[in-house]
Design a protein around this nucleic acid. Structure first.
Lengths: 146, 146
DNA sequence: TATTGTTATACTCTATAACTATA
DNA sequence: TATAGTTATAGAGTATAACAATA
């Protein structure tokens, strides 16, 4: 397909996509219940699951947040036993964060109220629409990861 | 109970889409500069622009936030002159919020740093990819509006 | 008594700046 | 001196509960 310089075919795409993302994010956060972890926590758990144990700085870089922000996320996850920390083998300043069995279980289950809300909305779509969202999700990940 | 009617062709779509949205939202917010309005403010301005003047409660309902949250958003927009408030013609409890010329100008310009970041990312995609995002944006709006 | 809106308060998420401990 | 991480602090965004004004 054609590319890089002229997005003229989709005018205002940035504006529209930005608002869509802000609003869906708001809806997703509003589904938060006390029994479930937050979206921020879930995102970190997911990264640990996909990439394996890593240091706080590496996790912050993967999630594209600043180290102090990640310190707090890790602390909250440690507190509820979803991640654990061990010493770095050679560098006393660093530590290694890893998913606990409970953290892995939680990711496997993924049966939060938030998940159910989105699953229900997705089930109301056509297969073609879900396919578009699946492809959009990949494209967004690529953009956001840059 | 079982998600037998659920999207078998796109397993884990809810999980993946949710994470994509959270992460893109994070990137978008991080583009915030002091010269630009926030995503929350912009979303409210956009709704006022599209739907016309309305009461704080109506605006809260449109944005799907609680009235006290919208009180704060409106106050911040009033303070910088992007919206104005006038009396409700018949009900003394209510007021009408409307876009000022400055607010309309800002929406027309939309030349914030945040916008530029996303525009740049979008320009790196193919036309087909942008088309997918445009369609996904519509689908998301439909879901988030429910 | 019910509705609209605001104030008071609190929690999450994120940031920057300053600090500690280790290299 | 440089790096990894934490603590201190602040601001945005959102919520619930309690209140005021009006209907």
């Amino acid at each position: 397909m054609n590319s890089a310089e002229a997005p003229a075919a989709e005018p205002d795409l940035a504006s529209r996509l930005r608002l869509s993302v802000v609003r869906l994010n708001r809806r997703l956060r509003s589904q938060h219940t006390d029994e479930s972890v937050s979206l921020t926590q879930l995102s970190a758990l997911n990264t640990l699951s996909g990439c394996g144990p890593m240091t706080p700085s590496e996790l912050a870089a993967s999630e594209r947040v600043r180290p102090p922000s990640m310190t707090r996320v890790i602390a909250s996850l440690e507190e509820v036993g979803l991640v654990s920390r061990r010493q770095h083998p050679t560098d006393g300043r660093q530590s290694i964060i890893e998913l606990t069995p409970a953290g892995a279980d939680l990711l496997n289950a993924e049966a939060s109220a938030r998940e159910r809300w989105l699953d229900k909305r997705l089930a109301e779509l056509t297969a073609a629409e879900r396919h578009i969202l699946a492809r959009a999700s990949e494209i967004i990940d690529r953009m956001a990861g840059t």
